[in-house]
Write a protein that binds this DNA or RNA. Sequence first.
DNA 1: CCGATAATGAGCAATCTGCTCAATCACGGA
DNA 2: TCCGTGATTGAGCAGATTGCTCATTATCGG
Lengths: 158, 158
Amino acid sequence: MPHDGPVDAVDARILLELAEHPRATTLAVADRVGISRNTAQSRLARLERNGALESFEHRIAPAALGYPLTAFITAQVTQRLLDEVAAALADVPEVLQVQGISGPVDLMIQVVAGDADDLYRIAGRILAIPGVERTNTALVMRQLVDYRITPLLRRALR
Amino acid sequence: MPHDGPVDAVDARILLELAEHPRATTLAVADRVGISRNTAQSRLARLERNGALESFEHRIAPAALGYPLTAFITAQVTQRLLDEVAAALADVPEVLQVQGISGPVDLMIQVVAGDADDLYRIAGRILAIPGVERTNTALVMRQLVDYRITPLLRRALR
DNA sequence: CCGATAATGAGCAATCTGCTCAATCACGGA
DNA sequence: TCCGTGATTGAGCAGATTGCTCATTATCGG
């Protein structure tokens, strides 16, 4: 059972409104939620201060940049060299995100590539990083559920 | 070698500007890139039409909602039931994203949870979905490289 | 019952947006 | 070389939004 976060029901409604209508102005959100503009403004400011809302970010589709392929590369690394490996991974432009995970595999690396050869090259480059012992590449074939946060927000309203 | 996407160098500079300064106005972007406001406006409109730029979205931190834990759950499913499984996963609020991947495991499921017990419960719920044969949960311990797109944009400038 | 905090309504200057229009520029085909 | 299409530019304008301040009112806990 998730403990209450620092957001209350009103905050959740604000966030839900923003999640569903990203271009909505502060005024529109205030109207929709049923609070005054000033309240909406101060709450939004607080949410940003808290880090709950990362102002707005512009999500850019890698496919539009010429990288239609996405893959998860898991890697086993020499634990002692974890930070060095992370730094080396950060130098690979096609690496979008790296997470340290529990279990037999140490790293979850999200990469994009222009085509299969490109992906093979990138996987090779990662494997060549000192400290990387083994890698395993899983190509993303299909988005079955697109990234979303609204179900969590809806639940916070109850 | 990635083939050229539908974005040219100017588009890339616009996107880079937006990625680095998400709150920048159209005017500010135009100035920074060195193009007129009209050009910036029409290019931005085109990028949105193309789907390269998803207008703006508000990224909300699950941790602020009371879900500090993130995990990757991989699952093997009965291939024939893939769509049904996906639909069932979409009904789980804590499931943020589901991708069909190549390899011995069929699904990559990103979930968030309030605590370890919560995660255990969610994993159980997923395993109980008809068609899900096996699951494996990997807890995200640390963000080593935060999601980013700027390196790809910088490369597109050359 | 009182006090601190939050919410509200009002107002204001500055800015941004969406849109239109006409002129100029760049580039490839005839 | 000339022409035409599409992109770019500068200008302008009405309307909306933003960030901010102020005073007043509500709300909730001690």
